[in-house]
Design a binder for these strands. Structure first.
Lengths: 213, 213, 213, 213
DNA sequence: TATGAATGAGACTTCATTCAT
DNA sequence: GATGAATGAAGTCTCATTCAT
């Protein structure tokens, strides 16, 4: 599975209409199939056929199967980063902590609901695809930096190290719980989202409010 | 990947010495390979060869490749369950909350350190292997019941629903963070374990101590 | 074309009847096809089909397509070496030079007539298949040593360096000319073989008899 | 590999500057690649890219891949023929035999040193590319005629048949040995060239001087 | 019961050539 | 005429599983 040849990127990044649309179709179809059947069980020919693109063209855009997964991963991480960046650029940083957590998790949850493949896809190839690991690492680093900044602003007494540990825990915990929530049924699902908020808030409060114990 | 034929379990559970040892060797080798190369990239023939077991014999113990993963899964979950059961059977239930959390996470962390394949292996086939999903679900249910009991005992005011949601969040969060900690370097790794304790404690306290806010 | 993975040998060397026969059939069919269509134009599936062997079995004996060519090469060189070894083991070493050359070239020519693929196959992949180059080199070294010994015995005044250069020239020249003769028509063909003898004799005589010029 | 469609030559022989230069670039790049990677392993797209010529344009000059090899072949044979023609047009025909051989082989060796692809390229497709066979045959015929004339002039007693056989042997032997010399290391290389002279001279002398034996 | 050679569908990928622009 | 994106047949090789011995 480990792809050693794929340069990690696309072969040709088309800016024009038709090709760009083809690439999108490929990515969308791949997303569906990867979620439904898994990365390994999905064949490049199936992707091409369902995307109505000749297999040769698929390979003109992507050097190999792994590159499709990587492009998908990049598309995901960019979108999530974008969403959180937008969220943090607004006046939300000055919100009281409970509200901040509440809204931040709402934003994240919205992302996972709209992109159910995010975690699903990354999980299958964990560890066996170095390139993907790097993409995820980069994305995480971005997210964590995002949070680190937000945390540091709220409590300037914290060291950079503290902030990073906190951000890491937050990003991973929230990510996992909201993703797991996805596959739960209605009532319990909402409850899980609510619990996630509680968990995150409880954790952050131990750093931001005087501890009375 | 989805194994439709596998009867869901082992073909024959050998009690005799030689066979039992062979099965163990298969499982141990499979664990190593699944971690190192991934489930899909590992071939049944490689497992058999490395375990010094004829491929034909392997298929006498396991109906198909998936069954090996399932047996591994069962072995894992049994051990984790066992560890937490032991932990809960002692006087630990009566410990003050912080100490309880502290020790419970220590136990769990010990398990993950000793069984690095636990999460690694399961993640790859998430969603694409119904049988495995069931095993994990069963395991989770057990763990969650374990915790549910412990939680209910500490705060009888909580409904069963509450307890289950709390337990779910706890099991999943702790599981994920400790697993992620595994692949971090020394200093940060310890910090993550510490943060996990903080997170769990902070969360549980919102349920067990009067909230003053 | 350059095969980097093939370990250079066969995957399994069967000593038993049925498998050994299969390997031979594969080799024979491959030989025919390589000569007729060329190495590259011949597909592994065609070889398997014509040899009445499932493609999977072919790959159980040979790790890749290149390995078939290599096995063929080895089979050839062994036979040629064998033929010349036999020739040199007899009393032929003591034959007068003209007779020695005459008979030696007869032996070689017989080999080329019976194994028309020898040169044909080597030529196509010259330089692009390191493993094959090595096999050829080894074979040449053997042949050259063979001749070197024979030459040294006839004229002990020659240095080892001399003998090797002479043997090299002889082996390569004779090999090429006899191979080229193969594809010529009847009359001219025989003439070429005769000329080869003349050429070799003329050359050797410059080393073995007093030069009068 | 056998190109059945190729009209046997170039599509358009451009006399104008830009096109002529493009064709030369294509031929030069192709030569490099054919030597380095082999004919089959080299793709037309790679040639076009490296030659900085659009693939479409390449196919306007050459009907198919084989035509490039053929053009290369023609370029080679023309040059070699040219070199030997020049050599034979001078007073060299009247040189004493040893000097004649000496100089003729020097000229040939110079050609092979400057055009290392000559043999390398042709060998790969020996027999599998009819068109190329013809080109080589034509070239050989020219060379052989050249030599035939030279030989006939030296010994008018020889029949035309004799001369042709001698010329064939000479052309092929010298060609092969000098080509093989190319890939040998310094000292041995020079020795091989010297041996080639000796071989050729020894052979010719059997036809030109009274044999005393 | 134990063995391991045998099987073949099907996976990924390439590349000579075309033709709409 | 010039361009280069598009095409898809076809190639090499893998591997879970069986079954004759």
């Amino acid at each position: 599975m480990a792809s050693s040849t794929s340069a990690g990127g696309m072969r040709r990044t088309p800016r024009q209409g038709r090709s760009q649309e083809r690439v999108n179709r490929i990515l969308n179809v791949a997303e569906e199939l990867f979620i439904a059947e898994g990365y390994t069980a999905t064949t490049t020919n199936t992707i091409a056929t369902r995307a109505q693109v000749p297999i040769g063209s698929l390979y003109q855009f992507f050097p190999d199967k792994a590159a499709i997964l990587q492009a998908l991963a990049r598309r995901y991480t960019e979108k999530l980063h974008q969403a959180l960046l937008e969220f943090h650029q607004q006046e939300n940083l000055e919100l009281p902590l409970p509200l901040y957590v509440e809204q931040m998790i709402e934003v994240t949850n919205r992302f996972f609901t709209t992109h159910p493949g995010y975690h699903a896809i990354f999980m299958e190839v964990q560890g066996t695809m170095p390139e993907l690991g790097e993409i995820e690492a980069t994305a995480d680093t971005q997210l964590i930096q995002e949070f680190t900044r937000s945390i540091a602003q709220r409590n300037p007494a914290l060291t950079r190290e503290d902030c990073e540990a906190i951000a890491f825990v937050l990003v991973k915990t929230i990510g996992t719980l909201l993703w797991l929530a996805l596959s739960q049924e209605g009532g319990f699902r909402d409850r899980l989202v609510a619990e996630t908020k509680k968990l995150a808030l409880g954790y952050l409060q131990t750093y931001f409010t005087p501890l009375r114990r």
